[in-house]
Each structure stands twice: as structure tokens, then as C-alpha cells.
Write a protein that binds this DNA or RNA. Structure first.
Lengths: 191, 191
DNA sequence: TGAATTATTTAACATTTGTTAAAGGATGCC
DNA sequence: GGCATCCTTTAACAAATGTTAAATAATTCA
């Protein structure tokens, strides 16, 4: 359905403008799939060979540590779901990615995407630019964690992604911010 | 000098194997430069328009926060120095990168690199792969900071990069690990 | 609807890490 | 060599965050 895809193609072009022909090649490779809330899209036990654009829904990536889950990423409409570890190394990764709401996704097989990258230079550069932007975001989070208090990180998230707070449980927000639920509750009670 | 470049070209090829012709194009674009210890290679006040391969030396990236410096990256021989923020957004970044030892670098202008990316598909894919690997490393550090204690992070760094500990002051190591010098001293004094 | 589950808050206490200050070492430079 | 500077450690205390447990609120599902 074209209407569903429009925000996704707009996002793709905003990352790195693609000639119509190459954009079309990418779009033509997409397959529409739907999954229910709580569905695991990526899991640690198998190599995932698809990447997913989110048309509707919200997802979180987490990994297991000691006896807890560590949430380190959220994705919403137009975001791309992929396991970097699985995708880049072609072996099972450390991350699980699950839907937190019923979702509509458009997926492309890794094989198809690699083929596009090998044969279309603008798509290869699109892929490069996409990862560069992801890297900056991750680097900023790492740096922020070093010199901002948990309260400051919460206030920033609230300001930058208010919709996230409305759609995701505080349990997961706390983990994403790098604190316990108890600490987050304390922060929210202040003032 | 070819001998100096050999480890760098080997590293380049290990990231993503390049046909000889395209590797040569990249190598031919490199210019040898030397800088003394403490030289600022990248600074926040200007757009940096070169990327640097380290042939000899060690560098650290840091940014200013409150009244302290936050060190968030180290680079050694064969590593690539660039300011992602400056390079990706084409505006002054938040990071400074300085040499901690006298260094021999091979640099390429951003303009030349972009031109290579636009015209040579294997180089474009090399650039994509390079950033993907950087992203994984950054993501892992972010996750580790969430559920490993400062002591564990120190022990891991010691095991994975013993040479780093020998070449870099503990002040910078502490910042890289996300703790104060005092905390790092305590960790080292234990047991 | 109502029971069961899950999410969130609160409290008390423990632990880790930060802050400040001082002292001892190491290093570099004239 | 000796002075000055910077690095590292140690100590005492403060602040932030974690842990455990319990109470309350919200949600899910039969």
C-alpha cells in the first residue's frame, strides 16, 4: 500500500537523496508483513536475514545481562530494525528486538540488500550514510552518560521524544537511560 | 614510504577487501604528515576537512563537559582519525582529537574521499563497512557501561588493550571508562 | 466483572562512586 | 641537578544510585 510506504520512502530520501530508479529498486524489494504485540522480530538464537522498516508500531532492542534485560534502542515509525551484530557479522547477535505494539513492517532480505549495495553506488552510499547517522547518535548517548546525571538524561529524553514516554513502560525507559526503575521513579517524583 | 603504509593498507583490506585498482586510488590520495606530541589534529572550532590514518602514534578524542574533559575514543596504529560530527554534518563537531605521542599520519581530504565514494562502488561499500564496525564497537561500550561495574570495565580493557594502558595516562583511561581518577585508583589498589 | 498479573511508587538501608584535599612520585625543562 | 609541573594515590566525607521489600495502581484476560 503506497500510503503506508510514503513516510518510509521520505525518510530514506532524507538520509541520502536517491535517484528515483534506485529508490524504486529498494522499494520493490520490500515485503509487507504484520506481527502482533510482543512478537520477537530478531532473536539471539538465529541469524536474522531480514531488515525491517517500521510502518506502524514501536520496537525495542535488548540483551540479557546477569539476571536482567538491558534495553539499548527504541525504534518507531520509519525507523529501521536490524541486528547490527547479526547483520554485520553474519552470526547470531547479542540482541533481541521485540514489538511493543501490533506492528506493520516492510522487510527486505539481507541478500537482496547486499546485492543492491554491490550493484548500485547510490544505494551503497545511502547505506553508508545511514550507519554514520546511527553512529553519531550512539556516540552521543555514550558521551552523555558520562557527564550527565540520570535526571538530566531523563529530562532530555522527555524533551526530545515525548511520544516514547507515552508508548513505552517506565521499566524499559529506565533501562534505556541506564538506571533502575526505582531511580527513575525517584527522578519523576522530584519537583 | 611503502613500509610505513603496509600495515594501513592491510587494515583497509581487512575491513572490506578492495580490488587492487581501487585500493591504489585510495592510497594515492594519501599525504604523509607528521605532528608532535600534544598536537590537536581535530578541534571543535573549525570544520576539519581531512581524515587521518595513524602510521605511528596514539590519539585520543575528547569533548568538554562542565569543567572537565570527557575522553571517549583512543586510536592507535592503523586506526582512522576523524570527527564524525564534523565529517558527517560538515559543521564544527563537539570533539577534539589530540596526539598523545609524536605521530606519523597519512591523511586524505574529505573532498577526495567523497569523490572516491561517489565514483567507486567498492570504496563506497568499504566506507559503509568501516562505519558499521565502528558502530558495533560503540554500541558494545554503551551496553557494557549499563551492567558492568567500573572494575569489570577496567579489567576488560586491561585484557583487550594492554598496550593502551602502557601508553596512556590513567587520567585519560579513567575518563574513557566513565569514572573519576580517584575511582580508577581505588580499583587498581584492590587485591 | 473479577482475579491474576504486571507496572509503578515508596521506604529503609547498603553500596558505589563522586568531591575535595593533601601527600608522594614521576616527569620535563632550563 | 633542581625546580616546577603534572600524575597518581590515599583519606574522609558527601551524594547518587542500587537492593530489597512492600504497598498501591493499572492492565490483561478468562
Amino acid at each position: 500500500m503506497q500510503a503506508e510506504l510514503a513516510p518510509i520512502t521520505a525518510k530514506i530520501n532524507s538520509i541520502y537523496p536517491l535517484p528515483q530508479a534506485e529508490l524504486q529498486l529498494l522499494v520493490d524489494s520490500l515485503e509487507r508483513v504484520t506481527y502482533p504485540k510482543n512478537q520477537l522480530i530478531i532473536c539471539t538464537t538465529k541469524v536474522e536475514n531480514h531488515l525491517y522498516f517500521i510502518a506502524k508500531g514501536i520496537a525495542r532492542a535488548y540483551c540479557h545481562a546477569e539476571n536482567q534485560q538491558v534495553t539499548f534502542w527504541f525504534g518507531q515509525e520509519t525507523d529501521l530494525i536490524l541486528s547490527y551484530h547479526s547483520y554485520i557479522n553474519q552470526q547470531p547477535g547479542y540482541e533481541n528486538i521485540e514489538l511493543l505494539e501490533n506492528g506493520i513492517l516492510y522487510r527486505i532480505s539481507d541478500q537482496a540488500l547486499q546485492s543492491l549495495y554491490q550493484n548500485h553506488i547510490n544505494l551503497a552510499n545511502w547505506g553508508r550514510k545511514f550507519v554514520e547517522l546511527e553512529l553519531i547518535k550512539t556516540e552521543e548517548r555514550l558521551i552523555n552518560r558520562q557527564f550527565k546525571s540520570a535526571a538530566e538524561r531523563y529530562q532530555e529524553l522527555l524533551a526530545q521524544s515525548p511520544s516514547l514516554l507515552k508508548r513505552v513502560s517506565l521499566k524499559h525507559i529506565a533501562s534505556y537511560l541506564g538506571v533502575t526503575q526505582v531511580t527513575l521513579s525517584r527522578i519523576r517524583a522530584e519537583r
